[in-house]
């Protein structure tokens, strides 16, 4: 019985408490683990107000870890290929590399992975407008503090200062600074006037779905969004959660439940499967027959 009161239950109590506390004390509202998000609010030259969602320590680390693995995989693959290829081509044994005494070894084996390792971030950030493959996967990008894509100088500066942020190891300095600054940036970002924001990810297809829904249904815009959100997450939710959310959504918009949910309780598991399926079909047809 005791085992059942696990971390999950603890969090159920603690997180709302912490949120409540954060709302009443806005000073600590930017602590990332409370689920509060910060935004960079800007007014553009033609007077529009826009806001970009600031990426916290978690997203930053996530992106970095992906990038680090990409680099390491490349380096290891390169060394392994060289190791196998060297013997095969009769260029001598890999033991001789350790003496670093041949220019061939330096130029073919050591230099390329070293260059990739050290130039990965600056070069890719410049070429991909403030992104790297890891940042793209984590859904973040580098922008200047006025919301633009940074120039070459700023990107080089933020990468040069990695030397400091990565001290003494595991980016300890950078992590601590990012936790303490209001925009969750490391020293390199402070130096370059840059920060990380989340990329907005509404694709063209998603726009078409939403437009079709907006044109075909008389749902309120917020309900349309709720419906699309629910359908997108349908596959990743538990059946009971799907039934719960689906029925609540139908109740909210004043629609009737699907017919076939009135089965006997002895067939409960089958009935919930049927209800699940019926709900999905009902919601899909509401969304315009997906």
């Amino acid at each position: 019985m005791l085992q059942r009161v696990g971390i999950e239950q603890l969090f159920r109590v603690l997180v709302p408490l912490a949120r409540h506390h954060a709302v009443r004390n806005p000073g600590i509202g930017h602590l990332p683990f409370l689920g509060m998000t910060d935004a960079l609010h800007l007014t553009t030259a033609d007077g529009m107000d826009i806001s970009l969602e600031v990426a916290g320590v978690g997203s930053r680390s996530y992106a970095f870890v992906i990038d680090w693995h990409i680099r390491m995989l490349f380096v290891l693959a390169w060394l392994a290929t060289a190791l196998l290829g060297y013997d095969a081509l009769g260029l001598g044994s890999y033991r001789e590399w350790l003496d670093f005494d041949s220019s061939q070894v330096v130029y073919l084996v050591i230099l390329p992975p070293a260059l990739v390792y050290f130039l990965y971030h600056p070069v890719l950030e410049i070429l991909m407008q403030g992104r790297t493959p890891g940042k793209r996967l984590a859904g973040v990008r580098v922008v200047t503090t006025d919301g633009r894509t940074p120039g070459v100088g700023a990107l080089l500066a933020r990468n040069l200062l990695r030397l400091v942020d990565s001290l003494p190891s595991f980016y300890l300095v950078g992590l601590v600074v990012a936790m303490m600054t209001s925009r969750h940036v490391r020293i390199g970002d402070l130096a370059a006037g840059t920060m990380l924001v989340h990329e907005s990810k509404v694709s063209s297809e998603s726009l078409q779905t939403a437009t079709r829904l907006a044109l075909s249904q008389s749902l309120a815009p917020a309900d349309q969004e709720l419906l699309l959100d629910l359908l997108e997450r349908w596959g990743s939710l538990h059946r009971q959660a799907r039934i719960d959310l689906g029925s609540r959504f139908l109740a909210k918009i004043g629609e009737a439940m699907p017919e076939d949910h009135m089965l006997g309780s002895e067939q409960q598991s089958q009935s919930s499967a049927a209800l699940d399926q019926a709900l999905f079909e009902r919601l899909s047809s509401l969304a315009g027959g997906r």
Binding site: A45, I50, L52, R148, E199, S200, A210, P221, A222, E225
Partner: peptide, 20 residues
């Protein structure tokens, strides 16, 4: 007219990109 909708979100990012 449609706050919180993804059409609005789409327009927002379209605007940011065009402005840039």
């Amino acid at each position: 007219v449609m706050p919180g909708n993804r059409i609005t979100a789409y327009l927002e990012q379209l605007y940011v990109r065009a402005h840039e």
